[in-house]
Computed example of a mutant assay.
Amino acid sequence: MSTDDTLSQTSPDPRVRAGVPDFLHDEGFSDAAIEALLALDLSLFQWRRMAEKGEFKGKVLEGTSEKLEPAILQGLLSIAQISAGLGRDVAEPPTIGMVAEVMAVDPSRASRIVSELVSRGYVTRQAVQEDARKSVLVMTPKARAFLRDFTLSKWRLFSQAFLGWSGEEIATFSDLFGRYVSGLLTAVSAPAGDDENN
């Protein structure tokens, strides 16, 4: 058994025990790149934990006049995103089906969240002229005021993370992170087995 094999079996790092550094080396990554990728993996883990625990959104909500529960907040944010066309080809009048898709929940769950938003005065339902059986979701002035406060509170917190960064550093980070997300989306959407053919 080689020294590398012994280290892999005795290392407390599960990524090392699973052979990740060896895999990356076989894929052509340099030692420096492997070390950087493992460090990035840890940073992304911390970021995911913060997101899953709701720490960031909780801190953002401290700067708003109303405190919405996570699911209700996500429902309202989803409606706003669809209305603005964020992450979509075009802006569209939101429907419950679209909200379910953005939130990755079943339509019945989305319907309950929308009903709560309606009862709290954040959203109204409006019938579509071409099809009276179909309704779209429209944000009220109350929702728009809340979202303005939420957005400004988010950016106050967000900007603190970049204090001391130069404009060039921010531009580089934005470009590289965008490339990372784009590459990850491509990898996730690739048909199974595609990587075996390369």
Rank of each mutant, 00 (worst) to 15 (best):
A36D: 12
Y180M: 14
V188R: 09
Y180H: 12
N197E: 13
A192N: 13
L7R: 14
D5I: 10
D149V: 04
D175N: 13
V60I: 12
R125D: 04
D22T: 14
D13P: 06
S166D: 06
A187F: 07
L157H: 11
E169S: 15
K57V: 12
L37F: 07
D89K: 12
G75S: 01
P14Q: 01
L73A: 06
T6R: 14
R133D: 11
T6H: 13
M1H: 10
L38N: 05
D13Q: 07
I96H: 01
L185A: 11
G164P: 02
K57S: 15
S11A: 09
D175G: 07
G75F: 04
L42T: 12
E130G: 05
R133C: 05
V128K: 14
G85R: 01
A84R: 15
P94D: 04
P107R: 12
I113N: 00
A145H: 03
A36W: 02
I34D: 00
A110G: 02
A104D: 09
A100I: 00
T95K: 01
I170C: 05
G58H: 03
V60G: 02
A33N: 02
F23W: 12
N197P: 00
I96P: 00
R120C: 02
D26G: 08
V181I: 14
L152P: 01
L163G: 05
G54C: 05
Q9T: 11
A145K: 06
L137T: 04
G167F: 05
E52L: 15
A100G: 10
Q126E: 14
F173W: 11
P70R: 05
L86I: 14
A145Y: 01
R120Y: 03
Q74V: 02
Y180S: 07
D41K: 15
L44A: 14
R48N: 12
W47R: 13
V16Q: 04
A187H: 04
W47G: 05
R144S: 08
A71F: 09
L40W: 08
D106H: 11
G87C: 03
R88T: 07
L38R: 09
W47P: 01
G19L: 00
V114M: 05
P12A: 03
A127K: 15
T124R: 13
F162W: 11
L61E: 11
R15W: 10
L117K: 04
A51P: 02
D89C: 06
L77P: 03
L38C: 03
A143H: 04
A171T: 11
W47F: 15
E169K: 11
M1K: 07
V90F: 14
E62D: 14
L185C: 06
Y180C: 06
F45C: 10
A39L: 12
L38A: 10
D131C: 03
E169N: 10
D41I: 10
F158Y: 15
P21R: 03
E116K: 14
D195V: 10
S119N: 11
T186Y: 14
D31E: 13
I72H: 05
D195E: 13
P21G: 04
P21L: 04
P93C: 01
Q9W: 10
S153A: 07
